[in-house]
Computed example of a mutant assay.
Amino acid sequence: MNVYNLLRPGLQVALIAGLGFLFSQCGNSSAEKSQMDEVPVEEDIRYETIRVAASRPASELNLPGELESYYETDLYPRVSSYVKALHVDIGDQVKKGQVLAELEAPELTANLTEAYSKVKAAEAVYGASKGTFLRVLRTSRTLGAISPVDLDASRTKAISDSLAIVAANAHYNSVQQLVSYLKITAPFTGVITDRRLSPGAFVGPGGQNGVPMLKIKQLDRLRLRIAVPEAYLGDIRRGNPVQFSVRSFPRQTFTGRINRIANSVRPETRSELVEIDFQNKGGQLKPGMFASVRLPVSTTNEGSLYVPKSAIISTIDRTFVLKVVDGKAVRVTVQKGDESAGQTQVFGNLKPGDLIFKTATDDLADQAKVKTQLVSQ
Rank of each mutant, 00 (worst) to 15 (best):
Y306L: 07
L224V: 02
L233N: 14
T269A: 04
R251G: 12
S264I: 08
P250E: 04
F244M: 01
I236H: 07
A262S: 08
P205S: 02
M213H: 00
N259H: 11
L214A: 10
V242G: 02
R237H: 15
V203P: 00
R225E: 05
T319K: 03
D235R: 09
I258F: 00
P205Q: 03
L233E: 10
V242C: 06
L214H: 06
L295M: 07
E272V: 09
A262L: 08
R247A: 15
T300N: 14
K286M: 09
V191F: 07
L197I: 10
V191L: 15
R195N: 13
V321P: 00
L285G: 00
Q208F: 12
G204V: 07
S304I: 09
N280P: 02
G303Q: 15
T253D: 15
S198F: 14
R237G: 05
L222W: 02
K281N: 10
G256N: 03
A231V: 13
L222R: 02
Q243R: 13
K215T: 08
R195I: 11
F320S: 05
N240P: 12
R270P: 06
V211K: 14
N209G: 03
T255F: 14
P187A: 05
V307W: 00
I312K: 06
G282Q: 07
T189S: 06
F188I: 01
G256F: 06
L197Y: 06
I316F: 14
N280D: 04
G190I: 03
T315S: 15
Q279T: 14
S298F: 09
E230T: 05
L273P: 05
F290H: 15
S298Q: 11
N280V: 06
T193R: 04
A227Y: 11
S314W: 06
G206S: 03
G204Y: 08
P229E: 03
V211Q: 14
S298Y: 03
Q279K: 13
F290E: 15
F244E: 00
R266E: 12
V321C: 05
G204A: 11
D277K: 06
D194V: 07
R318Q: 13
K183A: 14
